[in-house]
Design a binder for these strands. Sequence first.
DNA 1: CCATGTTTTGTTACAAGTAACATTATCATA
DNA 2: TATGATAATGTTACTTGTAACAAAACATGG
Lengths: 336, 336
Amino acid sequence: MKSPNMKNKRPTLQDVADLVGVTKMTVSRFLRNPDQVSAPLQTKIAEALEDLGYIPNRAPDILSKSKSHAIGVLLPSLTNQVFAEVIRGIESVVEPAGYQTMLAHYGYSKEAEEARIATLLSYSVDGLIISESYHTERVRKMLAVAGIPVIEIMDSVSPPIEQAIGIDNEAAAYAMTEFMIKKGRRKIVYFAARMDQRTLFKIKGYETAMLDNGLTPLCLKTNSASSFTLGATFLKDALQQQPDTDGIFCTNDDLAIGALYACQKAGINVPQDIGIAGFHGHDISRAMVPLLTTVITPREEMGRLAAEHLLSRLQGNPVSQRIIDLPFKIEAGESI
Amino acid sequence: MKSPNMKNKRPTLQDVADLVGVTKMTVSRFLRNPDQVSAPLQTKIAEALEDLGYIPNRAPDILSKSKSHAIGVLLPSLTNQVFAEVIRGIESVVEPAGYQTMLAHYGYSKEAEEARIATLLSYSVDGLIISESYHTERVRKMLAVAGIPVIEIMDSVSPPIEQAIGIDNEAAAYAMTEFMIKKGRRKIVYFAARMDQRTLFKIKGYETAMLDNGLTPLCLKTNSASSFTLGATFLKDALQQQPDTDGIFCTNDDLAIGALYACQKAGINVPQDIGIAGFHGHDISRAMVPLLTTVITPREEMGRLAAEHLLSRLQGNPVSQRIIDLPFKIEAGESI
DNA sequence: CCATGTTTTGTTACAAGTAACATTATCATA
DNA sequence: TATGATAATGTTACTTGTAACAAAACATGG
């Protein structure tokens, strides 16, 4: 029995066609280009579609053409405001172009990254935007086999699989450390959280700058995520380990702001007693008192650019530039 | 010619089967339950899978079973930290259960919401978590036709399509306004941004509480998104319109913090001259000086609960509770 | 009014995996 | 060794939309 909608499954093109009295091919034509069917049928088909509440089904298309019109976005975390802004940049380009975003995150675990990539590929995403620059052999093989364009974001240094768009975190950290030193800071402590690759690069930049200036680096580390409250904890640790600390450089604005508040509570004057610098330049850093000294990074632009390059690749264009190194900026602020 | 991988398309089960010399059915069985094939074949198939880098393809499964093992999440915005935390809650449940998240956002536009829902449904998502409580007829019809479980989050008041999980925004705003009045505030101004439904509920709660206490409400509104810098702008406006303002209640923590900083810059003492309250209770509100008085909302739990109920429904369980009203909490802080 | 061209609609086959059924192989026991 | 039971593998059909080809309907001009 060919009853349409027997099991209240959602209507298919066949159901619509049956209602009108044509074949599903005719309905399919109408959907792609209404003028391909005769005027009277146009009306009837449009009515039937509306009537049944037909919703297109991408699955057959994905199956036969291996094109899903979806792009996969894989990030280490969704909580971090940095990634939220990257996502906004990606979506601002991808959505108007008619692509859907499949978002996944892996909590900084390499095994989880493998699993998420396999999942995204199993949905036949047309392209991938991923983060971090180190990937396991298995990940590299999957990506090679999948044969879809892949863009790595956040970091502009390591040789990319195909194309990377990011900033030079080490150089940025070096620059900020130098800035602090030029401002007279000598006993600068680095606050590091979530020891991912970008953090390691930043630590390297900080340590190199310190050593280049004959100063002794001191880095406080934790694997947990950065937060405002963590900034306060770190401040206590820093003062304990090095009571004459006169500068704090944080891997993230929230650590910096947390540390700054903790100074206020402890009666330490910023920047007179201790200078504090953050990283990223979120909106709050431009509103707070004192204005935060921070490294401004182009997070949204990074997402936008990654998406633009990915779409370009999907249109058949070759990789135009293997590494796109976006500029960062030292925002002087008032906290140093 | 039945060449495997002629066009370097990614390998299929057939390619693996050809390599081993069996039918794809045998390989399929191995993947679902290795013990269903003989021991020697197990080894050979495992090798071939590894060798070719086989990646499963969900499309045929989605096509034949109309089950994608993906759930759609549709939110008005991705930038807002509130939603980032909701997403984290959702993913913390959904990912371990083997489901993939398809994320979309619509920038508070009803037309965009329709389009996004159609897109998500076209990918045959197994269930949907959506936000806001008002939806167009078209959206309601699409959801009805799709026949998948739908859970609405954020708001616990309006009658849900099927099931809603959220907080009573009006009651929360009423409670905070009363709290401020009890603390002696009389000329309280409300700062509203992004005039979505939840904001309207909050305004209503604020206005009702003011009127119930014989006070005159004053609400500053804008359609743009809330931000720290907007809080500063609003403060100026408020003092201009009502110079003896002694309380500010903000629709969001970032507005509140922005206003607080602006007070500091203007030499206005908080809470002595003006008391300030926020909404949501993000991490920063617990680290700052003075501690922010705010309404603490269970954002992550909301996401977690929504996901749990959705998964339960996907396992065939009926809707257990149409409206789940989560508790909010007035956090006293020091800013009032 | 037929031949020819054009427009409109129909038919068939296909994408990849798996459920359901069919067949073949293997082995223990009468 | 034949028999039946069980294990292992194969075959067929199905899911939905559309490309590619086929056929029918219609129009135009000689």
